[in-house]
Design a protein around this nucleic acid. Structure first.
Lengths: 327, 327
DNA sequence: TTCTTAAAAGTAATCGATTACATAATATTT
DNA sequence: AAATATTATGTAATCGATTACTTTTAAGAA
């Protein structure tokens, strides 16, 4: 790859002029511009991101932190992020933390090292203190998952209300015994969705039974299946279950199949996220749709504002229920 | 973030000495080492990747090219890549090309710009000529998908044999009318799996009927569903279908549900890839398992060898059939 | 045509590291 | 103790760009 010096020599001008042709063409004469452009084309020159970054301290790269790439929930958000980022002349670096603090440190160092211009964090397992501390120096926004802290901006949905509406929908269908498959409540969205569940049941004077609530340790199909197994094994079992994530719901659905239970007649099921799978399983899963693509693209816009040094307001986007055939 | 100059000043030595303490500690006295280490700790110094890269031309970063992050097939491979890479002191940059040549160019430029030390390509839509040309100058390996070219190394499986075995399994179960849901045959694996299908049918003197073969344009659930719809709409329809990808198979399965066909009694289904989801659908999908994790970790080892300038041999790994309940 | 002013191009410092080469400080040999 | 060999440290060039500052060139005014 040719360097700026070679281009300068070839075009018979100084390196400064070449740099100007690239960055501020107005400052150079048409004739000179032409010569330089020609040299650039001839030598197949591309400015070195490294040299430029070292000098300007910007890489036009974002870090996107997520716990695991295999969770399909993130796929769509990433799509929104990617498209918006590219449109704005940025690229993204997908960073899978696997909920491993050591890996998190590596990625945080990348921004300290100016290898990236900003961070979009979607990782619920992220070290909140460190993230907050980092956010005082570097542009950071949170997407979907967030820490309640007013220095950190976020874009998310109202999980509590969504859960409330989902459970209310089950109640309206006549269910009186409603179970919950939740994720570890140390995650904000899990505790919020729990509160929505609780609120709906209380409002209709229905029983909140600890035996009908199962908190999973992991967010995968098996955990959902395991949860449903436990719920089914009870003498007095629920007639409907709200799962705080489609991944869990899909796993639960498998357990229902294994037990030959008719869905929704013998057991109704409500998921959350509207991942692609949710419409492919049988019967198609009733769920809560988050505006995933928008969340992604908005978080990029917020990050860009931050980079420009503007104040940015956090956003709570609208969700909606998608009633399919499991309820 | 402190710079090497500040550390040098604080420790009362030259920048060269600081650099030596970090890179070749044997060359500096214990006492000096101690002073410098202390300064590094005090100032919370981390070497700038940018400065270092500019000088040494290595970033310890890999590019991983894939068409789409939402295809669960890649999740496990990436896991293998990520773990092996981190173990070797490298990080990976996940690059979603969305099969868009313009985006591909961006990522290729990153390696020309020395922003990354190597590329692992898993993208079947990649521009093969450009990849081959690039591979003469930069370390590149292909994972799973590959171009037949002896300058380009790859790690993959024997798709033709796997397809042959899968179809043979269906034949052994007594099926005489076997359909195929394939992906666009311009992709090598699609044409190889087709050949395996063809070979098995020919061997047992079974009919290869064009009406029973559907090539999808995209690799997603809907395409699989659409394919099965077409196959079902025929007067004389197959009793078993081999889909070259689980994603297609799962979509096809949905169409079977919609049509209330019993699986496998009225229609058997054989997938390919063993994605996590294949064991969650109902009934669990019979499929071909690729050693995805290994493919990922091996491709990193191959890439590292290439970076060290060693000759590397391409590898064809073993697959195996996972017989579940759709056959 | 000469003087003033604005625009264009060049020179060199800079970003943060590494490293060849030069020099200073020890260690070893005689 | 002096001469020599070895090791430790420092100096300065370098990677590839950007940009403040200076100098040159061209345009406009008198």
């Amino acid at each position: 790859m040719a360097t700026i010096q070679e281009v300068a020599k070839y075009a018979g001008v100084s390196v400064a002029t070449v740099s100007r042709v690239i960055n501020t063409p107005d400052k150079v004469r048409k004739h000179t511009q032409f010569k330089v452009q020609n040299a650039i084309r001839e030598l197949n020159y591309e400015p070195s991101v490294l040299g430029r970054s070292l000098r300007t301290s910007q890489t036009r790269l974002f870090l996107v932190l997520l716990p695991s790439i295999s969770n399909p929930f993130y796929a769509q958000i990433i799509n929104g992020i990617q498209n918006k980022a590219i449109e704005s002349g940025y690229n993204i670096l997908l960073c899978e933390t696997d909920s491993d603090p050591a890996r998190e440190v590596i990625f945080f160092n990348m921004i300290k090292n100016k290898l990236a211009d900003g961070i979009i964090s979607m990782d619920p397992t992220v070290n909140k203190e460190r993230l907050i501390e980092l956010s005082t120096k570097y542009p950071i926004v949170q997407c979907s998952e967030y820490a309640k802290d007013n220095t950190l901006s976020y874009v998310t949905i109202d999980s509590e209300r969504a859960a409330y509406q989902a459970v209310k929908h089950l109640i309206k269908l006549g269910h009186k015994k409603i179970g919950l498959i939740n994720f570890d409540k140390k995650f904000l969205y899990a505790s919020e969705r729990y509160r929505g569940y609780e609120k709906a049941l209380k409002e209709f004077d229905l029983e909140i039974k600890d035996d009908w609530i199962y908190n999973t340790k992991h967010l995968n199909f098996e955990s959902g299946q395991q949860a449903m197994r436990v719920l089914l094994n009870q003498a007095d079992r629920p007639t409907a279950v709200f799962a705080v994530s489609d991944v869990l719901a899909v796993g639960a659905l498998k357990e229902l199949h294994i037990n030959q239970l008719r869905v929704p007649e013998e057991m109704a099921l409500f998921g959350f996220d509207n991942i692609e799978f949710s419409n492919v399983v049988y019967p198609p899963l009733t769920t809560v749709a988050q505006p995933m693509y928008d969340m992604g693209s908005i978080s990029v816009q917020m990050l860009m504002s931050k980079i420009r040094g503007e104040e940015v307001e956090s956003l709570v986007l609208d969700h909606h229920l998608i009633i399919r055939e499991t309820t």
